[in-house]
Design a protein around this nucleic acid. Sequence first.
RNA 1: GGUUUCGUGGCCGAGUGGCUAGGCAGUGCUCUGCAAAAGCAUCUACAGCGGUUCGAAUCCGCUCGAAACCUCCA
Length: 493
Amino acid sequence: MAETEPLYIYNTLSGKKEEFKPIAPPFVGLYTCGPTVYSDAHLGNVRTFLTFDIVYRYLTFLGYNVRYVRNITDVGHLLHDADEGEDKIEQRARMEKIEPMEIVQKYTNGFHDTVKTFNLIPPSIEPTATGHIIEQIEMIQRIIDNGFGYEVNGSVYFDVKKYSEQHDYGELSGRKIDELLEQTRDNLEGGNEKRFFADFAIWKKASNETIMKWPSPWSEGVPGWHLECSVMSTKYLGPQFDIHGGGMDLKFPHHECEIAQSVGADGINPVKYWMHGNMLTVNGTKMSKSLGNSFLPHELISGDHPLLDQGYSPMTVRFFFLQANYRSTIDFSNDALVAAEKGLKRLMNAVNLLDKLTIAEKTTIDIDSLIISCEKSMKDDFNTPITLAHLFDGVKMINSINDNKDQITKTDLKRLKDHYFNYVFEILGLKAENEESESRGLPDELMSLIINLRNQSKDNKDWATADLIRDELKRLNISIKDSKDTSTWNYEN
RNA sequence: GGUUUCGUGGCCGAGUGGCUAGGCAGUGCUCUGCAAAAGCAUCUACAGCGGUUCGAAUCCGCUCGAAACCUCCA
């Protein structure tokens, strides 16, 4: 692998693409905000995790030793207002009449199934908030000791006003603290324990009924939502690490608060490169549970949802996402998914052809520029749509060789195969989905029997019988496709 | 209301101060007993109005439109 071109990453902190320089190469620390496991992850959630799956895969491909940390939020994420509502998991547990930790387990399992379905590589470490209560309490103490936290009635708040006198609260999201006050739609209402409207809870005293709570120097309570990411990233990646990812909607306040907490506790700006993935939209509007326009992965695959004309395979969805830049919104539609389905098939057909090409004395295609182009586009802030475009240029080449219009030598074919293997499977994380061949056994043998009989009819030019077999199978949702000397079959969806 | 981003051909989506994005659909062709599939070729574009420039879809301004964030959200 030619390791010459630098990698550029769009850093939210600066608002531009910057050359990626790891703090301690060959090691790279990558942290992504994981799910709050109080309900099923929907497709929009999947998109963000996919974005960082690509980052992880590509950095690894480049030879970096990546430690990828993605947390599970299993406590502390409150409803409605980050500091006032009920814990999401507790509320859900009450609704389903089970233990909060059962909720956590149930939806953690579901999340793992989902990410596996879409072929996401598991993180190196997947820490939970409840597993790091002690560390969170320690961090709160450091924040208090440094004068950036204060206790009121057993709860501890981060003193944003004080912090902003010495530091830039808003450096990530571009907000100005004094403007924030006027711009906030709902300003401070009465009965609030906070000294300043922008302060946020880092420890919240729990009510008597609350099941999930822990002792602390201030009260029995729960840690604030923003805190866990600061604590766990620091613990596993150090006080300063390379890349922090998450959805665009977490930029403010969540990530802004993370910075403030780390600086407040340890005096170090925790992250060199902030990356934010954009939203999945439906008819131009953000997919979200509250709007009722979200659907779950299994609904997408089965097609069992009012917004869906049909089901789409996980790899179709993965390909669909990769056709857009992670920093752009991508709009869901059935047309777009159908297009992705066909595009993916075209790509995969060509990849499969690679094993069947005949070798020649010379090579008449330009493999070098294909390889260089793909490297260039991936190193330009993980530009997967351009990379796919290059790979489709290569598809033309492959087909052309297959049609004997171009030629390739043994060595070059090996390079081409390696290239597609690397990019399609390793970097973009696509995989073959031959669902019809999954442990078919008997049907497979029956079908080859039928196809053989039909081929005999064809050999005898008994078209009526051959067509009858094909038509009758079609009624059973099985389609027959004749190529030059063989016939293939598959289930129709 | 504030902040930010965006408005590309039938659809999805890149990119960029002058040079083909790509995928899907459409059209034509090849292959084929027929069909399907597949392959090849090919058409339509840069919201509107001004400005900067030799030249702008790309830079600047305004208008219109959309979205995200400012509340929990990936």
